[in-house]
Design a protein around this nucleic acid. Sequence first.
DNA 1: CTTTGTGCAAAGCCTTTGCACTCGC
DNA 2: GCGAGTGCAAAGGCTTTGCACAAAG
Lengths: 152, 152
Amino acid sequence: MTAMQHSWPETLRDCGLRVTRQRLAVLDAVAEHPHQPAEAIHAEVARRLPEITVQSVYTVLHDLTAHQLLRRFDPPGSAACYETRTHDNHHHAICTQCGRIEDVDCVHGEAPCLEAPAGLGMEVEVADVVFRGICRNCAAQNAGEHKAAQPV
Amino acid sequence: MTAMQHSWPETLRDCGLRVTRQRLAVLDAVAEHPHQPAEAIHAEVARRLPEITVQSVYTVLHDLTAHQLLRRFDPPGSAACYETRTHDNHHHAICTQCGRIEDVDCVHGEAPCLEAPAGLGMEVEVADVVFRGICRNCAAQNAGEHKAAQPV
DNA sequence: CTTTGTGCAAAGCCTTTGCACTCGC
DNA sequence: GCGAGTGCAAAGGCTTTGCACAAAG
């Protein structure tokens, strides 16, 4: 269940994609730090591949997403972020204070988690859920400083 | 339940906002055609207020949203859209083919529709759900033309 | 060697911001 | 008249696109 299906090179080739250092580096970076925007992914990748450009990161992210090797998630109001969990249905929780994003496993298994309302006029295939609230860290921090917390 | 709380001018004043033709026009436009992007709202408003600019529409939308007179919804991958239903909890269904957005009433009432998973590490306040699928129109259309439908 | 992918640069789309004029109150 | 709101214009952030060089198979 937690076993990796293939190694990245194999997975890439299975999609008819060539194996490049850039793609491997992006895949590694996203796997290790999910839910990061392209800018941050570039920063991380650039530590090992200094010549890589942000545009290439965008292109790589786009291509890998198109081939289902990555999943793109658009938090309302901020830049798109990416994750390697593409094959199991899960949702996301966003801390409204610090912006951190956590995965939320789908309790009902792989199928869409929610039964769509009856009279919808639409055949529902997927239900994406975004939970918003205050994460543990921020809650603790707020409790600490009793003063009006106005995080920037 | 479907009764309008106030008239728009009253509602605006209650928020400490001045009553302008632009704001009234935007409120009317959004009320009549919800889930439209700023560009479309501007087009509609401009039919009665030809001098209004897109930037003003953006500003008005921003201000009214900040005062809870409008609610902003960001469909992944497309421009933000707006609606006047701000006080009842509801969700959205997006047709992946034509992009149309429908409201989905929340079956559990006004509170967050979903119980957040237990070990989440986050105190959930809101759950926003986006259903995606094929709407009735598009389904019928697809059934009609049996050929591979590749809508642009 | 052929084809795909990258670096580089530029443009695109959606949205916000700054300032002077206008209008609501 | 005072202050908030609009028109106008410009910039901003995020992302995509086009083309020549480099790398993968």
